[in-house]
Design a protein around this nucleic acid. Structure first.
Length: 424
DNA sequence: TCTGGGGTCCTAGGACCC
DNA sequence: TCTGGGGTCCTAGGACCC
């Protein structure tokens, strides 16, 4: 048996832990640049604020219902997430951290327990330790645990826990789950399935496996098997090393000057290098993209992207920033209003494999030497001690393009100066 | 005026090998 | 007029997730 523990309206719940006045009121959290809704309290959902909808289109509604609006505070949410996860880790022998607000737990060793009762005690413990409300779904496969969790969330009668164990319970649950709500079935596949007259999870589970295999490939066939109680997806306790790392942002205003765009690109490249060192990986490829708003008229639209081989594996900020600058020169077109850019590093290998793989041909970009490696270590430890961004390279600068974050709460759990601010 | 960010997996097709 | 068989690797594009 698998349990899926999923935090309720997670980002809103994080804000409420430190600001209890928000309880019972409609609250939303916006994406970066204060663009779209990415979390909504139950009250905000019932007003009709849609997930992913742009906030400026709902300005009237927000005002009318006195909705509390917050900018995304990812340092806070990340820290609260690790508190929830470490609490869960004490409640089950094995867990997989699936996302910032969800974890799968292995319940196979709990056969002699009353699972429903145990799940309720887990909920209570997480609330007590972190202040975050969660729902628990328990079933024989991960996909069915997702189904159970959805029912626990939707139906107040379950009081936060839904256990699907008998065939009767499972069939009843599948019959009231629309195909588009199944984990692994997105928009395109839902459209296809409805066209095949398959509308519920039960219809999908009973559809011809050959037809599903043909049109939805191996991925869809697995989902179908999981719905029929055949477990195909196991608990992944160790997160595999990342294959790519991306840092991208929309700008607070449009950027036209090369130098300003270069500052943004250098900042993103620097962040990728930091993420690489944290991950313990080194990159051999760098992709840069720059673009105008996708909502522009066609003649004002531009999407530029290019991938560069770094000729060696590196996690060095200076090398990566320099490479990003080289690519920017080749894809920059004057006269456009840029709204977003991003750096992706890929071709990742574990850092420090020795001997290092050296380039066959003399490289355009100089190899970082030992002094440079030491410099990175020193920079990382300064930023660790005094807060990220305390020290950076001169090319990194966010003065011109930084995203809007006008409604930000304090970093209550990760920054001393924010804690002092709260106290004052 | 204003529309997010960060990932993974799978498949098909092209280029290459002997 | 006729022109093999069996592979691997890489990439782009499309699907999905939170």
């Amino acid at each position: 048996m698998f349990a899926l523990v999923d935090c309720n309206n997670f980002y809103v719940s994080c804000e409420r832990v430190f600001n209890p006045a928000l309880r019972g009121r409609p609250v939303v959290v916006l994406s970066n640049n204060d663009g779209c809704f990415i979390a909504r309290s139950e009250e905000a959902k019932s007003i009709g604020l849609a997930m992913g909808a742009p906030a400026f289109k709902s300005r009237e509604l927000l005002k009318k219902h006195k909705v509390v609006v917050h900018s995304a505070n990812f340092p806070l949410y990340g820290d609260m997430s690790s508190r929830v996860m470490s609490t869960l880790a004490e409640l089950a022998p094995e867990l997989e951290i699936y996302s910032i607000d969800e974890a799968f737990l292995d319940m196979s060793g709990f056969k002699r327990y009353d699972l429903d009762l145990y799940a309720r005690s887990m909920r209570k413990t997480v609330m007590q330790h972190t202040g975050i409300p969660v729902c628990v779904g328990i079933a024989p496969t991960k996909t069915l645990a997702k189904v159970a969790n959805r029912l626990a969330k939707k139906n107040p009668g379950y009081k936060g826990v839904c256990l699907l164990n008998t065939d009767k319970e499972l069939l009843a649950a599948l019959a009231i789950t629309p195909v588009e709500e199944i984990w692994g079935i997105g928009r395109q596949w839902s459209k296809f399935l409805h066209a095949q007259n398959l509308h519920t999870a039960l219809d999908f589970a009973r559809a011809s496996p050959a037809m599903i295999r043909k049109h939805l490939h191996i991925t869809g066939a697995r989902v179908q098997a999981e719905l029929n109680g055949k477990s195909c997806l196991s608990l992944e306790m160790v997160r595999p090393a990342k294959q790519s790392i991306c840092t991208s942002r929309s700008f607070g205003r449009s950027v036209t000057a090369f130098d300003e765009l270069h500052q943004a690109v250098a900042t993103f490249a620097g962040k990728c290098a930091i993420k690489l060192r944290k991950e313990g990986s080194a990159a051999s490829l760098l992709t840069l993209f720059i673009c105008t708003s996708p909502f522009n008229d066609p003649e004002k639209k531009y999407w530029g992207t290019r991938t560069l081989s770094l000729h060696h594996q590196t996690q060095d900020s200076i090398s990566i920033i320099r490479a990003a600058g080289v690519v920017l020169e080749s894809i920059f077109r004057a006269g456009y209003e840029y709204k977003k850019a991003g750096v992706i590093v890929s071709g990742l290998i574990p850092a420090g494999v020795s001997p290092a793989i050296l380039p066959l041909f003399p490289q355009e970009l100089p190899l970082p030497d030992d002094r440079q490696k030491k410099l990175m270590t020193v920079m990382d430890s300064i930023n660790q001690r005094y807060g990220s961004g305390s020290i950076q390279l001169a090319a990194e600068n966010s003065a011109g393009w930084k995203p809007h974050q006008n409604l930000l709460s304090s970093r209550y759990t990760t920054a001393w100066k924010d804690i002092i601010k709260v106290k004052g």
